[in-house]
Design a protein around this nucleic acid. Structure first.
Lengths: 214, 214
DNA sequence: TGTGAAAATGAATCGCTGTTCATTGGAGGC
DNA sequence: GCCTCCAATGAACAGCGATTCATTTTCACA
């Protein structure tokens, strides 16, 4: 949370929350045009600040993108971690992770678009990209899988890494299709309603035969 | 396969194959820098033609990207279709699809990079993007799934669409991780060796209980 | 109310690169 | 050998937009 002043944050800044407004504006604009076709001036306008102001908060356009992604991602993963603490069954934990991801992105379409279209790009081509985020999330999934293996609920012979990729990949692909093709304003339809059918397939693929799913 | 002459292709052009050389160069350069940081002049240089020549074959930079993706994709899908004709068991068909995709991208790293980093972007932001390709590939997967359901090998209650997304998503995610993180020159390691573990999970998730996998 | 420092502004700069087009070259027909 | 046609060339153009910075505004404090 850098602020223009190098010293402690001024009270003014805290209330005026320009930093967050810029991040939000960036997500909106980038979702509309894609990162490279987004003009800094449009982001500034949408945030209600001057072009130059953005450079008081961010080193450059690249860093703005990364900060926006980072910020949203950490908000998400914190929520996910908290939610998982209330669950003990590894199968239910997986179900919940799937639900949370689909819910989070399903209710923030612009963010979903930025994640699905810009993340891979950034991960590959921005040297300063924080791969940490992705690692954290994968570790979360892997830890649940391991837990399940140790409890004898998930097949012990599976590679946790491969299983984690299958799990994440399936969800990720559903989100991608949603941002690419689904017209948005079908009110009653929630992306998160797809969590169950997906998890149904994956759990069956991962579980041992002994116990049964639900 | 447009050629500079609006009339029939000249024999000269066929042998000099500039068109294909430009496509190949585009894949290489874009894999190195990402589409937006790729200069047309560098693609031209790599293809051994002048900058202006590219515009005799392609309307603009966007179209060059799309043509490169389209060309590679159709080559792939044609091979996949042919290979599947020799197989009857739907389970083995799925296994083969996974193998072919991992094999094709695992042996063409530059192409893999372009696919994993640029495809979503293009699909979302290039209005002229041919979604047809993706639809074709998904239809191929879906048709195998339906076939399996009708044969009683795959669970009939599953949504073929959701299952197809899980399948594609899992493979896609593995490829993405490979282009992002795996150092390339570990000779004996083939991306395609991951086909079995992945398909193992997904088949178990999709199959009916009656018959068993392999 | 006055003062200084930090924050904010936004017009101007400047580098970059996609695209154009006047010119060149060479192959095929006569 | 000459002529015509068109592919090919690559230097020049033009527009764009990220970034800068001289100036203005805000505000905490005395």
């Amino acid at each position: 949370m850098k602020r223009p002043s190098t010293a402690a944050a001024r009270t003014v800044n805290v209330t005026s929350d320009k930093y967050q407004r810029i991040l939000d504006a960036a997500i909106e604009v980038i979702a509309n045009h894609g990162f490279f076709h987004s003009r800094v001036s449009e982001i500034a306008e949408r945030a209600g600040v001057a072009d130059g102001t953005i450079y008081l908060y961010f080193k450059n356009k690249d860093e703005l993108l990364m900060a926006a992604i980072d910020s949203a991602f950490h908000r998400f993963i914190a929520r996910a971690r908290a939610a998982l603490q209330e669950i003990s069954d590894p199968r239910e934990k997986l179900r919940r992770i799937a639900f949370l991801q689909l819910e989070a992105l399903g209710t923030q379409r612009s963010l979903a678009i930025v994640f699905q279209t810009e993340l891979r790009h950034s991960a590959k081509f921005l040297s300063e990209f924080s791969h940490n985020m992705m690692v954290e999330y994968f570790d979360l999934i892997k830890s649940v899988l391991k837990e399940g293996q140790e409890a004898g609920v998930f097949r012990a012979e599976l590679s946790v890494t491969v299983a984690a990729h299958c799990f994440f990949g399936a969800i990720d692909e559903i989100v991608t299709t949603w941002i690419l093709y689904d017209r948005e304003l079908e009110r009653d339809y929630h992306l998160s309603s797809l969590a169950d059918p997906i998890v149904d397939i994956l759990l069956k693929g991962i579980e041992t035969g002994s116990k049964h799913g639900h």
